[in-house]
């Protein structure tokens, strides 16, 4: 017998490629707003490309809007809110992958 697939209406979820290949099912949350990465920051309504992530050299990841808002405050002293190192945006780490 030959099985010919004529049409496959499949379903998938998209995930940010945060480097954690097999993250647990709850997923990671943004360290600033505590909303999952695949959700969107409190200022946005649409997840995904409209509310992207930002990677730091320190390896921390945030919603880009959350980080920019944080960096914009005086209290931040331009530091990563997690480890207090000066924030340096990393080249997107996925680029290293390919």
């Amino acid at each position: 017998m030959k099985v010919h697939v004529k049409h496959w209406n499949a379903v998938a979820q998209w995930r940010w490629n945060t480097g954690n290949a097999e993250e647990d099912d709850e997923g990671d949350v943004c360290g600033i707003c505590r909303v999952p990465f695949e959700g969107c920051c409190p200022a946005c309504k649409m997840p995904g490309d409209d509310c992207p992530l930002i990677w730091g050299e320190c390896s921390h990841v945030f919603h880009m809007h959350c980080l920019l808002k944080w960096i914009g405050t005086v209290a931040s002293k331009q530091q990563c809110p997690m480890d207090r190192r000066t924030w340096v945006t990393a080249e997107r780490k996925v680029n290293n992958r390919t």
Binding site: K6, H7, A10, A12, Q13
Partner: peptide, 20 residues
């Protein structure tokens, strides 16, 4: 979409097949 990956939900959806 270089910053995203797909995770399949294989039990959902439909498949059209022809069995020869």
């Amino acid at each position: 979409k270089p910053d995203k990956v797909l995770r399949w939900l294989p039990h959902l959806g439909r498949v059209s097949l022809a069995l020869e």
